[in-house]
Write a protein that binds this DNA or RNA. Structure first.
Lengths: 160, 160
DNA sequence: AGCATATAGTAAGCAAGCTAATGGTTGCGG
DNA sequence: CCGCAACCATTAGCTTGCTTACTATATGCT
């Protein structure tokens, strides 16, 4: 049979695991006044300080509007700041503040510990295969999204 | 080195893949007036009609409050209905309406096609391993969440 | 120069997660 | 039988995702 409804389907499994991970991390980051999404911004800036908001959106694979609001929150907490660019006033470069560095170091430990916990019981080989599998899925889904972006114009109404 | 920052870390990878899947499915279900979360409710009821809201929340692994609002939406669309239980007025049993059945059949095809697309390029064996890996992760994260629920009471203040 | 187009960011509105607090029922123990 | 605890559901409020529409700035073509 085609539909081997093993348990709930791989799609649901993926969603459940991701939701659970978000929940765990949000809990553990709460003492730091951070959420998982906000941490993603900090982690990206930690290795590539000074990105613009659009670049951040690309790297984090979320929408510009989402990243904008996210930055509002983190900036309100004093961990990052927007700096105008001299030559192009449309841009803002986002930089970590001094307070951010030590906090990032501590949060990194929490994140790594959580990752270890999440992967406990899986061999390095299994982890690698999991990574590879998820990468394939991401690539397939990106392709699906792209192919959709072109079709919608005329799926059910013929011209005149 | 311990932190082999391969690309973005397995945690981010997991979140990205899940977010992408949600995006694709939400798009494809939009013509049906459904979202992925609402579909989860319908899919569950399709095999186990008449669950209570709390049972649905347990099965779907989301909070009661979330499932309540979700049911509001789907009910407003006329696909399900809440029926009071005679002997216990705290309960509502959620049932599919007649209109729901044919729609569920069509949506199921879309979902299965999307799953196939998502997994294209992965052998059955790879899919199985992916499933198993995600199941382990879910179980580890559930354990992490539980162990946290017991600790918080007294992490930093000693009794008198 | 001047207008059209593209690009960076913002704003508003919806869905869906979560938590915490509330109201209404039920059931049990004294 | 009365009151307390447990339980179902709802409400309100927060964050984060998306979409769509808008502003402001830059660029490019005529």
């Amino acid at each position: 049979m085609i539909i081997h409804e093993d348990d709930k389907g791989l799609g649901f499994l993926l969603g459940d695991a991701a939701r659970l991970l978000r929940k765990v991390i949000d809990r553990r980051l709460q003492p730091f006044g951070l959420t998982r999404a906000q941490w993603a911004v900090l982690a990206m800036l930690a290795s590539r300080d000074g990105l613009s908001q659009s670049e951040l959106a690309d790297e984090l694979e979320i929408e510009k509007s989402t990243v904008g609001r996210l930055i509002d929150h983190v900036e309100a907490n004093g961990l990052i700041e927007r700096r105008p660019m001299a030559n192009d006033r449309r841009f803002w470069r986002v930089h970590l503040t001094e307070q951010a560095r030590p906090l990032i170091a501590r949060v990194t430990e929490v994140i790594l510990a959580t990752r270890t916990e999440m992967l406990s019981g899986l061999t390095d080989e299994q982890q690698r295969r999991l990574s590879d599998g998820l990468a394939v899925i991401k690539s397939n889904l990106s392709a699906a999204l792209d192919s959709e972006a072109s079709k919608p114009p005329a799926p059910l109404s013929e011209p005149c």
